[in-house]
Write a protein that binds this DNA or RNA. Structure first.
Lengths: 144, 144
DNA sequence: CTGCTTGCAAAGGCTTTGCAGAACA
DNA sequence: TGTTCTGCAAAGCCTTTGCAAGCAG
């Protein structure tokens, strides 16, 4: 569906489709996010963008990530109370969250079969379904 | 399974089973949590406990909620990056999260049918499966 | 006595905001 | 020139921690 990495033109086109003006900073941030399917925190995005040269301030990273998420370019994944992860893959899918390492792993939507969904509360519409499977390292793995 | 509200003796017994010494503050906090099936933030617990008389400090509320969650007395629900909700219902179940009102509603486990689960990542064991259905108020409801 | 609990205040970490200057159309 | 964006620093929130006093066994 989505093919990573996206090059600069693809990133600009994507932003255009979502009605986001492609400033230099935003393009840089998007390029990092869409380099591959991954899950990055704001802090990680900030580091990656400024890896070689300082290109974007922290405030802009936060504002831009919020903007991208609101506009549907990326998805916020909330599994850890101390930080939000941003996911460039917006097609429906789920996540493993390794509570020991703080790592997220994608689960394709078709790998989980949700047979039936309950009736929604009155006066509400579904905005998203997500399945989070929390996993822990096995004793063997922890010995590392 | 669980019957709410729990009285003081039941709360003490529960704490005993989970190897938590039942100090006065902890019993007060547990009594608020187990008054009914609900989802409270730390801030809300703090307010409820000290509603009439100041009984417990904020630090103790936070520490105690963390302790209860670690010991398996209650469950943490992470759906909002700005705060954690604590859920006295520990039998498996899922949640609706109303993003407009910030409200959580329980979904019985048997109302969601997860037909198949994917293979776990290497060297990990499942620590919990949770389904979160984010809902939004309908246009009609928002007019309120 | 000895160790566990509490609570105040301070510190911390992540995120948002105010506002002036820069960029863009 | 008018609007949008950027970025620094400050403010804000929620949560944790240091440490002395209190309590329990």
């Amino acid at each position: 569906m989505q093919n990573f990495p996206l090059d600069l033109d693809q990133v600009r086109m994507l932003m255009h489709q979502h009605h986001i003006s492609p400033t230099q900073q935003r393009v840089e941030i998007a390029r990092v996010l869409f380099a591959r399917p991954q899950h990055l925190s704001a802090e990680q995005v900030f580091s990656l963008v400024n890896e070689e040269v300082a290109l974007v301030s922290k405030a802009t990273v936060y504002n831009t990530l919020g903007l991208f998420a609101r506009k549907g370019l990326i998805r916020e994944v909330i599994v850890d109370p101390t930080k939000v992860f941003y996911d460039p893959t917006i097609v429906p899918h789920h996540h493993f969250y390794n509570v020991d390492t703080g790592t997220l792993v994608d689960i394709p939507a078709d790998a989980v079969d949700i047979g039936k969904l309950p009736r929604l509360p009155a006066n509400t519409v579904a905005a998203g379904v997500e399945v989070i499977i929390r996993v822990r390292e096995t004793a063997a793995a922890e010995k590392k």
